[in-house]
Design a protein around this nucleic acid. Structure first.
Lengths: 95, 95
DNA sequence: TTAATAATTAGATATTCGCCTAATTATTTA
DNA sequence: TAAATAATTAGGCGAATATCTAATTATTAA
């Protein structure tokens, strides 16, 4: 969990996560989105992977990155205690 | 929002937030919980306040700190995009 | 099998972060 | 008013972070 908080404490990494909402992308496609070198992006991807916020699957010479539910769940878990404390409003009817 | 992510990326600050679930506490009471000097705790409280995760109200020579919904909401907001992507399961009936 | 492509790993550097001690400000009590 | 208490602000230092260039690994194509 520790590392998930660290992972999302960086604007570039948060933007990578946002970008991956569109669907899986390889490292090159991700790097193209940013004004930053590929090694730097590679480092960010590694950290996001450690935090289980993304998955990596090698397909030939490409590596496809996609969002991983696990990391998000671990952070969500932390929030629950506070959500309860504040009793965040919930809709009365499920949409 | 930027600063809220920074604020929760530190074990001590997260523990301070947890501690405040019990209710408002002054700086001295908070500092007593940790094996750390008061100035260090004061610094952490300042950052949490900047992130609107806590509120500070001065009462005489004491300052009472309490949780502030705003900071949590701003982080929660960020999560919604991903929650939608994963379609986190919701109960069909409101409890 | 050589060259090109995709991506990572390694190493260096400037900046940010978290902690400490010392000093300061503000409030209360003797 | 002087002393004590609560808390912050200031300044310094070592560790961690983000970025870059250069080098390496792995895969595909000529």
């Amino acid at each position: 969990m520790e590392i998930a908080f660290k992972a999302i404490n960086d604007a570039t990494r948060r933007e990578i996560l946002q970008f991956l909402i569109q669907g899986p992308q390889n490292a090159g496609q991700i790097a193209k989105q940013f004004d930053m070198t590929k090694p730097s992006i590679s480092h960010h991807l590694d950290l996001l992977k450690q935090a289980q916020l993304i998955d990596a699957v090698k397909k030939g010479q490409f590596i496809h990155y996609s969002l991983n539910k696990k990391g998000f769940e671990s952070i969500h878990q932390w929030f629950l205690a506070f959500a309860q404390h504040f009793e965040f409003p919930k809709p009365k009817i499920r949409l």
